[in-house]
Design a protein around this nucleic acid. Structure first.
Length: 325
DNA sequence: CATCGATGTTGAG
DNA sequence: TCAACCTCGATGG
């Protein structure tokens, strides 16, 4: 499932292709029929992400709140000429290559670029983004269990499998936001940093649990947790109140950096400090993208000690018992 | 083809 | 604390 970076990228797609437009809202699956009727025919006025939550603002103070949970996803389809292209903004000049269909794909398996591609395209935005169909009728038939379809004249977004999908008023949105910690994509200034540092360190719980608590910091998930802790050479079991001020500030800065890379590239690249050729190889090969995540039993990339897998907070935790002693 | 597991949260007990 | 949610790629037979 997407961590914070994916949700920001999805919100960006809505901002680009839906905000300012009248939207036909439906629930092909039927489970969101009432909510769809409330929103149908209104203009979308804003789209924003906070951590893993997304909020789409419609006329008259109505919001659609979506959380993808563990297997939710948005499928976008529309005209490529409108710029459905999550990789054009990617950094480092890592351009795409043309595949056998003439569709342009990125330097890795799950991205899309727009050069010379067919007129219509579709892409999935969850943990992966990729071409599903090159050409099809318009609008396309919903595939599978589509909870919500948002349709404009030239773009469509289908939502399936979300944990949360509901219509809220301003107060409802505020109530959700009040439960969330800071998100460095929204504010990476001193105030947000101080809030993170204070909330992280006020608990005696393990720092590995605190980083996953969305009230401490919004947007970190299981991959980024493991990687951030390794990058800090910090033991996941360290009680959060024993994390020094400087360490806590560094954790925040590193998360802000990794999140920015994720939002820009669409990749959970957590080994950004590699040389350029090694970086390219890491991007190309999913298994080589992380320091510890999903590397249990494999030698640590730094000290060759076997990476450990254990449960923490009902999730798999990966770490190096030597580097993170 | 069947089964498993996942980048997550909620709410029952 | 743990099952439910309800999707789909990866894995195994």
């Amino acid at each position: 499932m997407p961590e914070g970076h994916s949700v920001h990228r999805i919100a960006r797609q809505f901002a680009r292709h839906f905000v300012g437009r009248t939207v036909a809202v439906s629930s092909p699956q039927g489970r969101f029929a009432d909510g769809a009727a409330l929103l149908d025919g209104r203009t979308m006025t804003d789209a924003k992400a906070v951590g893993k939550q997304m909020f789409l603002d419609f006329e008259d103070g109505l919001w659609l709140r979506v959380h993808l949970g563990i297997y939710g996803a948005w499928d976008f389809a529309g005209s490529l000429e409108l710029g459905f292209d999550p990789t054009t903004a990617s950094a480092g000049g890592r351009m795409g290559q043309t595949n056998q269909q003439g569709t342009v794909v990125g330097a890795h398996e799950d991205s899309l670029a727009s050069i010379g591609a067919p007129r219509r395209t579709r892409l999935r935005m969850a943990e992966q983004e990729k071409v599903v169909d090159a050409l099809e009728s318009w609008p396309p038939e919903p595939i599978g269990q589509v909870r919500v379809r948002l349709l404009t004249e030239d773009a469509v977004a289908d939502l399936r499998g979300p944990t949360a999908c509901e219509v809220l008023d301003d107060a409802g949105v505020r109530a959700v936001l009040d439960r969330l910690g800071p998100d460095p994509q929204l504010d990476d200034g001193p105030e947000a940093k101080a809030k993170f540092v204070e909330r992280l360190r006020r608990s005696g719980k393990a720092v590995g649990l605190q980083l996953m608590d969305q009230a401490v910091v919004a947007g970190i998930g299981n991959v980024y947790r493991a990687e951030i802790l390794f990058r800090a050479r910090m033991n996941p079991h360290l009680p959060a109140k024993q994390v020094t001020l400087e360490q806590a500030r560094d954790l925040w800065a590193d998360w802000a950096r990794l999140l920015e890379i994720g939002v820009t590239t669409g990749q959970m690249m957590t080994m950004d400090d590699l040389a350029d050729d090694a970086y390219r190889a890491a991007l190309a090969n999913r298994a080589d993208r992380h320091w510890v995540y999903k590397r249990e039993g494999l030698p640590c990339r730094v000290c060759r000690t076997h990476i450990v897998l254990e449960e923490m907070g009902n999730r798999k935790l990966y770490w190096c018992p030597r580097c993170q002693a």
